[in-house]
Design a protein around this nucleic acid. Sequence first.
DNA 1: GTGATTTCCTTCATTTACCGAATCATCTCG
DNA 2: CGAGATGATTCGGTAAATGAAGGAAATCAC
Lengths: 170, 170
Amino acid sequence: MAEDQITNAALRAIRRILRAADQGGRKLAVATGLTPSQLLVLQEIDRRGETTPGAIATSLQFGQATVTNILDRLEAAGLATRKRSSSDKRRMLLHVTAAGHDLLANAPDLLQEHFRNRFGTLPAWERAMILAALERLGELLDATEIDAAPLIDVGIIDRAVDGDTVPDAS
Amino acid sequence: MAEDQITNAALRAIRRILRAADQGGRKLAVATGLTPSQLLVLQEIDRRGETTPGAIATSLQFGQATVTNILDRLEAAGLATRKRSSSDKRRMLLHVTAAGHDLLANAPDLLQEHFRNRFGTLPAWERAMILAALERLGELLDATEIDAAPLIDVGIIDRAVDGDTVPDAS
DNA sequence: GTGATTTCCTTCATTTACCGAATCATCTCG
DNA sequence: CGAGATGATTCGGTAAATGAAGGAAATCAC
């Protein structure tokens, strides 16, 4: 069926994008001397201004232990600092150091940068179209993933619209 | 500028998609008892039918050593087998075992499955639009990544690279 | 207030991923 | 038959990530 072909093509395109993004991340990591995870954490701290390990962990979906681990390295590298909160001494407040800011400024996300360059050259209508498609897609996948478990009963309106591939699955 | 806003929105959407995909992968991994990488390798072997570690490595962009490592685990888990090629005894031929097929069948790619379900419910025009956008985007990012990465050494093979889905020789 | 519970982070131990370099067997070409 | 290339493995090392357990501080119950 043509529809299925479209779906397959779309999936292929998504994977291609995923791969490109992944590699961009690794490349960037190499360029900055940090690993992707470290960079991610550093960016997240920067984005949030002043946070705690726990916040980073939930937001990036890492374990706390992992974050601690990565923070150790970032701190050792002089890119971030920990400071105990005075109001709640269980907490550690995280900050990006000057060096850290420097690094982030000099090594902006490759994906982002190249995307910007290229995307900017597209005609406006195409940008708009792509944006619309991406957001739609984000909804689709997000919904999928957010309540993956509980959602099942809610979301499925009718699966039999047009014999769309319903693999035996579960 | 409005353009910048669009770009930012697009980037956000992309990240959202990336995250969804990533988490889908992890979830799946947990469900199957394998790690994302292991699953990826297993899928790749399955997709290609009969391949060699080297092919997997280049196709997934892993090092050979990494693939060997993962194969050890897959083999230990009884999901894949290695068999020395008789025509060229340097090569190992990889196969997915019955158990491996089983696992793949029972735990199909979550991203893929949910995407199929949801995507299928969209009106045709929207599917077409999204597909077009995705492919455009794939080009953008791919191009980005190609020239960023001197894949020079692969140049000989690279005629076929574009399609990605080009099955192994045969 | 004292004690129990919860919250936040860390430490520890372990598994996996990944890479580069070195190695071994094999193939291929001259 | 070498000489060199190729395919896979082993080895050594760094990093990521998780779960379990623990310590310190806040909070709640009485």
